[in-house]
Design a protein around this nucleic acid. Structure first.
Ligand SMILES: [Mn+2]
Ligand SMILES: [Mn+2]
Ligand SMILES: [Zn+2]
Ligand SMILES: [Zn+2]
Lengths: 146, 146
DNA sequence: TGTCTACCTGCAAATGATTTGCAATAAGGG
DNA sequence: CCCTTATTGCAAATCATTTGCAGGTAGACA
């Protein structure tokens, strides 16, 4: 699927979801999705902002909105800075990362033990709608060499 | 084991570890350990500070030092505020939590699938010393009722 | 196309957690 | 008890993120 197809898809979805909430299709919102579409790893608001030409506050506001609309997913690597990834349609984006403690290289980890563990924990403690947040940290091959 | 025994143990360990680094045994440092010893769930720097009578900056500096000396462990519930738990000797404190998304009730989760998953991830991606951070979120029984 | 209005944006100031510079103070070895 | 060096209190600085406000714009409708 070509890039422009992705773009069209993003735009169509964005349009649809924004309409449902009486929100508007603005330049910044489209551009943020475009920036995220090009990346394979999560980006910080600042990194996104550097590739755009609008106010940082707008980036934060847009990301929050896009997150509420389930078009981007927020990740937390524990360094006090949120990171965002684009979500495909019908994808809740749940997955994990392996982050190098030295150079911050990110590896995407697809697999997840999810279902069973979550439901077991829910049952054992009487909690409902249990979710989890899991990230791995280590030293990447390159940093081991140096 | 009575409370004063715990206290004595903490103090002995604190003394030993501080000496090795040419650091001093001060009131705030002892008191922070005392506060943490009374709690079963992690506390924020602010919560600790409220139970003491020293500057907040001192609490932050002390917690950082105690963390470096492996006497307390830092946890991240993803709300932008670090939390700390006391570590026993020869305990790396690795465990997880189940946090209510509504009232923030914390349940300690002892079990961990650790070893196998971490080493498998390490091997598959060539990373070394892989660790992980995992927290669960859900709605506690009480909040489900309300 | 022009109008209208709710939604958006830029900008600057506010927040909240955590850190840091600095001068005053205290720990503890000798 | 003294001296050196670590530690503390206080205020100011950082950093990521949010918010108030006044001017700008998307888009429904005439
Ligand atoms: Mn990812
Ligand atoms: Mn715990
Ligand atoms: Zn690396
Ligand atoms: Zn609850």
């Amino acid at each position: 699927m070509a890039a422009h197809t992705h773009t069209r898809q993003n735009l169509a979805e964005l349009t649809a979801r924004l309409r449902q909430r009486d929100r508007r299709i603005t330049g910044p919102r489209q551009l943020i999705l475009d920036v995220l579409r090009r990346e394979e790893h999560p980006l910080t608001a600042k990194e996104i902002h550097e590739q755009l030409d609008c106010d940082l506050a707008t980036v934060y506001r847009s990301l929050r909105l896009l997150e509420e609309m389930a078009m981007v997913k927020r990740f937390d690597f524990g360094d006090g800075t949120a990171r965002f990834e684009l979500l495909g349609q019908n994808d809740d984006g749940h997955h994990h990362h392996l982050v190098c403690r030295e150079c911050s290289t990110v590896v995407e980890i697809g697999e997840c033990f999810r279902g069973n563990l979550e439901s077991r924990i829910a049952q054992e403690h009487g909690f409902a709608s249990v979710s989890h947040r899991l990230e791995f940290f280590g030293i990447c091959p390159e940093c081991q060499a140096n």
